[in-house]
Design a binder for these strands. Structure first.
Lengths: 346, 346
DNA sequence: CTGAAAGCGCTTACAG
DNA sequence: CTGAAAGCGCTTACAG
């Protein structure tokens, strides 16, 4: 395939061409395109005919520059794929489209912040507002954006101290508690382990609170030995359980923190010849797509991740267009009982 | 959270502010930002200081308008999430970032084409080139883009007749054939069914060719009864197998077309009290993330989907910047033997 | 090495 | 209902 490189390509029709062809001013063309003022019916149809004939598409850059409004939303997330991010992205994309905005995506990975003068990939210069997933932006940058009054909505974490950036996340504590209640009341578990996320992880914090309150409510003393880092990922969770098995720590259930960690718990238990749920009950959090396919099918908490994406986008669009948004949106979660906790299959 | 709505928000620093603060012309500021011409060292540092002090970010829209170059790529895909699209998206995003481009994403779903004069979400007006997944754009539109010499790279389908749009996809036939060879030679299968994708699906076509050639090479007559539509999705595949079971059609293996369909085959077989692989061997294509977790773990063909994404992006960037790209890139695939074909587990 | 100026393709008061 | 004109914030010949 051979094309003229971008710089030499022949130019496409502009609003001036359309105006000339339709015998009107460019202001009138602009009005029929944007329906921003009444235009005589016959004038309008002439303009539309010219647009069609010339195959004209108003250039976004010019519109943004002239109108000072970008109808595009930026999304900053650690990763673009994976069982957790897929539904989130789907919700964001759907709602962005629904609002007539374009979606610009940047996956931060674990990369370091770039030089201040470097052109950052996604910021106020190319979006009208940003959706920021927890840990995708240094707090310093969040503060800067807040200072210039740039619309930002946080996902799965709350606003830094004193900033009051709107946030949408899920209800963690209540369902974590319900999960532990279930383990204790239905399956008679007493030595229930909990695997935390990374240090300072907010979801993890609230899940642990739910865990602790359930224990307390059942007069089971909290044992710090039964809590360690699972990192909300397979690898760390596997290692944590493998260590415990080697040390001979006794436990009859593991609340893995999230489903990714639960996968690691399952593999470690299997490697250690422990049966699930007979020897150890295992439960997760999130209800990833693959969780129902695990062996045994995973008992977990369903997090409405797609909904989180949709709601965050809705709030951001509101913030951009109306200047206001709800400070905190907390989406409900629910227990999904399958078999890894010891319940019978369907 | 309360902000000024977009239209009233206070303006941010522009290149003029920077120039004034640094005591130079805006042309000079532009030169240090773009490194487009030599600038005296002391001048440069003054400009950089001003940029930092004012927290200046050049506005994309203005740059695009003035330079007539958009460093953004558009991606048109049917869906944004799911086991198949996740790795594709990951590859595209990574390579886009690598090339210093921004990524605009639009999921077409099954929606109808919009009015020609409607503002389309992703096109020549807001991107410098587009990545188009099979069936995400009507052929008519592809033709129009070709006429205006707009850079497009097709993913998982070849160019329409006579257009010569570059395309990147995978090698289907050879590994499909190897898969059937395996079923015949190792597991003695003789009545092997094949589930096709939607009508005209290119990947499906080549997989079927591999299937047929393997049969022919082993002197097994092709039986049209054993080929039906599985649609490359769970639901249709499940129904197809359920039908066959009801009709009492005899088969000892199913090459499901892709892994999604294989999931449907597995559930239908289970519902019909057939054991896999004892009664029926099942194999797929793609090697989705969940395929290893299926029961039994799925024997399939690994498609380098993330690589496809990366390569397509690379070609598109070349096309945009240099005006040329490879007409066809075919990525290799490989057999992944697990247990659903009858092989022993690890 | 630097600046003045034209121009990119639109939108939007302002006037009529 | 319509047009002339200013202006959005940059880049890029052109001159010096």
């Amino acid at each position: 395939m051979n094309l003229q490189p971008e710089s030499k390509r022949r130019s496409r029709a502009t609003i001036t061409d359309v105006a000339r062809k339709a015998g009107v001013s460019i202001a009138t063309v602009s009005r029929v395109i944007n329906q921003t003022a009444a235009v005589a019916p016959e004038t309008e149809s002439q303009v539309r005919a010219a647009i069609t004939a010339l195959n004209y598409r108003p250039q976004s850059a010019a519109r943004v520059l002239a109108s000072r409004k970008t109808k595009t939303i930026g999304l900053l997330i650690p990763e673009i794929s994976g069982d957790f991010f897929s539904p989130l992205l789907r919700g964001i994309e759907a709602e962005t489209r629904n609002a007539g905005f374009a979606l610009l995506i940047y996956a931060t990975q674990r990369e370091q912040a770039t030089e201040a003068t470097d052109l950052q990939p996604l910021r106020e210069h190319n979006t009208g507002g940003m959706l920021v997933f927890v840990n995708s932006l240094p707090e310093k940058e969040l503060i800067r954006l807040d200072q210039i009054e740039f619309p930002v909505v946080l996902i799965h974490c709350s606003s830094p101290e004193g900033l009051n950036i709107p946030c949408v996340t899920i209800e963690n504590k209540h369902s974590a508690q319900a999960m532990i209640d279930h383990l204790i009341e239905v399956h008679n578990c007493r030595r229930i382990a909990f695997l935390t996320g990374a240090d300072g992880q907010e979801d993890s914090y609230w899940r642990e609170m739910g865990y602790r309150e359930s224990l307390a409510a059942h007069d089971i003393p909290f044992d710090p030995q039964l809590v360690t880092t699972g990192g909300f990922n397979r690898h760390d969770a596997h290692k944590a359980i493998a260590n415990w098995l080697r040390e001979g720590l006794a436990f009859d259930a593991v609340f893995a923190g999230d489903d990714e960690a639960a996968v690691g718990v399952l593999t470690a238990l299997k490697a250690g010849n422990k049966r699930v749920p007979e020897d150890v009950a295992v439960t997760g959090f999130d209800d990833l797509h693959l969780s129902r396919y695990l062996h045994p099918p995973l008992t977990t908490v369903r997090a409405p991740t797609e909904q989180v994406g949709r709601e965050a986008t809705r709030q951001l669009v509101r913030l951009i267009q109306e200047g206001e948004a709800d400070p905190l949106v907390l989406l409900p979660t629910e227990l999904v009982i399958r078999q890894s906790c010891g319940c019978a299959g369907p």
